[in-house]
Amino acid sequence: MICGVNRQPVPGTTIFDGEQAQRGYALNKMTFSFNDAVNRQAFLADEDAYCAKFGLDPEQREAVRKRDVLALIAAGGNVYYLAKLAGIFGLDMQDIGAQQTGVTKAEFQARLQDAAG
C-alpha cells in the first residue's frame, strides 16, 4: 500500500502517483502533444513560446532547457511522456538511463549486460 509517509517506498524511484500527476500536468501535457510531428516542429521552432503555451512553471521550464531527466521527473514528468521529448533530440532510453545514473552510455549498456549474470 502506498500511502502517508511511505508514499515513495522504492529507493532511486519516483512512483508516478496522484501527487506527481498533479505536479507535472502541464509538462506532461506538452510532451503528450509531441505525438504530432507538427507540434514537435513548433517546439523546435520556438521552444520558449511552446513551453509558455502549456504554462510550464519555472522549474519545469528550466528542466526542459537543461534536458535534465531527473529534474524533469522531480517536476512531475512521467517517463513515457518524457520519452517523446527525448525523441525530438534523437535520444533513446539508454541515453536517458546513462544521464540519470551519471555514467556513459557504454557503461550503462555494460551494466545491462551484466544483469544477464
Binding site: 522504492v10 529507493p11 532511486g12 524511484t13 519516483t14 531527466v69 531527473l70 521527473i73 517517463v79 518524457l82 520519452a83 532510453m93 536517458i96 538511463g97 540519470q100 545514473t101 550503462f108 551494466r111 545491462l112 544483469a115
Partner: peptide
C-alpha cells in the same frame, strides 16, 4: 526507465 535506479533488471 526512470530515476537513479534506471537500468534495474
Amino acid at each position: 526507465l526512470d530515476g537513479t535506479r534506471a537500468g534495474f533488471i
